[in-house]
Structures are given as C-alpha cells and as structure tokens.
Simulated scan of single mutants.
Amino acid sequence: MAYEAVTQKAVSIRFACDAFQISETCYRYQHQSEDGNSLIADWLIKLTNEHKDWGFGLCFAYIRNVKGFQFNHKRVYRIYCELALNLRIKPKRRIKRPVPEVLKEPEHTNDIWSLDFMYDQMSDGQSYRLLNVIDDYKREGLAMEADLSLPASRVIRTLNQILEYRLPPNTIRCDNGPEFTSHEFQNWAVQKGIRIEYIQPGKP
C-alpha cells in the first residue's frame, strides 16, 4: 500500500512509511532471488565434503573472502542448517604415536610391579579412585587402595605397607600420572633403590 501511495499519489516515501507505520528499510527491501540458494548449497556441500573438519565459520569465510560472493551471513547459515550440515559429527583427530616399545617381561617374583588407577562412582554419584598394585611375574594382586583422593603420599604409604612383608621390586611400571611423576614419589623410589619405568602415553 505504501508503494502504491508513492507511485500513484506522488507522496514522499517518508510520508507513506509514516502513514502506514512501516520503516523505510522495509519499504526499500527487494526480495532476493532464490536462484542464489542453489549456488550457496552447492558450495556448502562441496566444502564440507572436501574439508570434514570445517564448520560454518570457515565455509562462510571461504565463500565470501576467497570466492568473492556477497551473500548475507544469515542467508548462508539458514541454508547451512537446512542441509543439516550443523549436525555433522566431526571426525576425531587421531594422535600419531611412535612405534610402541616392547614391554620387558619379568623374570621372577618382585622383578616388576605395575601400578595403575581405576575410577568408579558410588550410588550417590560421588567418584572415587582405586590404586592397584600387581606383581607382573605371577599377576598377583598386592594391594587395592580405595579413596576419594589418592595423592603421591597415599601411593607411597600403600607401597610401604607392602614392603613390610615383601622385598622391594627391581622396577615399578606405571603411567605418566602426576602421582607417579611427582618429586615425592621419585625421591622415595631412589631411596628404596627402585627403578621407575614409565610406559608410553596411550599404552595401557
């Protein structure tokens, strides 16, 4: 109606917009052709197929900055969602690891002990930790310590309790957790004449 008033009654655009209570932006808006939507969709599908880890931001930046298309951000995102590209599952990045080292097999009792933590939850949702100590030669469980927190001092206390009735091992095999890499634990091992063998990251 505002357009008819301007073209047929020769009134100003501002007057017509005020009379019909619309903004001048709304009056001057020109419907964009849907022809560009298929072009946007083609580029989005092409980019997401070639670059599995690209999200909307990188796709839009490529379309605008590299290809030079001046499509509106909201328009491109609407088509991106209509194609369900926002629901894609991004592939997990696999960490490249070196060739795993062959673990030394124990030759006798008390040759190698293995230390490792396990995690679980109680019925109320409270998490707790389990420290397992195993003699690798016979796969004998030497201790299982459970608590909400097991710092290096608790690990040392558990090992000292085992050493009250058993000879110390030549080697303790463990992961690179903070309890095992702490100075407190390393100094204790030196005092006992025990060598610490850290396994490679990602190798149980």
Rank of each mutant, 00 (worst) to 15 (best):
E4L: 12
A5V: 04
Q8L: 13
K9T: 06
I13R: 12
A16P: 06
C17Y: 04
D18Y: 01
A19T: 12
A19C: 07
F20W: 08
S23A: 05
S23N: 01
T25I: 00
C26V: 00
S33M: 03
E34C: 01
E34F: 02
E34I: 06
D35K: 09
D42E: 14
D42C: 04
L44S: 08
I45W: 04
L47F: 09
E50Q: 14
E50D: 11
E50K: 07
E50C: 02
K52P: 04
D53C: 07
W54D: 04
F56S: 06
G57K: 09
F60W: 10
Y62L: 02
I63M: 14
R64Y: 11
V66C: 04
V66I: 12
G68S: 06
F69L: 08
Q70I: 01
F71M: 00
N72G: 14
H73W: 11
R75N: 07
Y77D: 02
Y77G: 01
Y80K: 02
Y80N: 04
C81M: 08
L83C: 07
L83A: 05
I89F: 12
K90N: 10
P91I: 09
K96M: 08
K96Q: 13
R97A: 13
R97L: 15
P98F: 02
P98E: 05
E101Y: 04
K104E: 15
E105G: 00
E105V: 15
E107F: 10
E107Y: 09
T109P: 09
D111T: 03
I112R: 05
W113G: 02
W113V: 05
S114L: 03
Y119C: 12
Y119K: 07
Q121C: 15
M122S: 10
M122C: 13
S123F: 07
G125A: 05
Q126V: 11
Q126I: 09
Y128T: 03
R129M: 05
L130K: 02
N132H: 14
D135K: 05
D135E: 12
Y137D: 10
Y137R: 05
E140L: 14
E140Q: 15
M144T: 15
E145K: 14
A146Y: 11
L150W: 08
P151Y: 05
S153P: 04
R154P: 07
V155L: 07
V155M: 06
I156P: 05
R157D: 13
R157Q: 13
T158R: 02
T158M: 03
Q161N: 12
Q161Y: 04
E164H: 11
R166S: 11
R166P: 12
L167M: 11
L167Y: 09
P169T: 04
I172N: 02
D175L: 06
D175Y: 09
P178L: 06
F180G: 07
H183M: 12
H183Y: 14
E184F: 06
Q186M: 11
Q186A: 13
Q186G: 04
N187A: 12
V190K: 15
K192H: 13
K192R: 14
G193L: 08
R195I: 12
R195A: 11
E197S: 13
Y198H: 10
P201G: 00
P201I: 00
G202A: 01
K203P: 00
P204Q: 02
P204G: 03
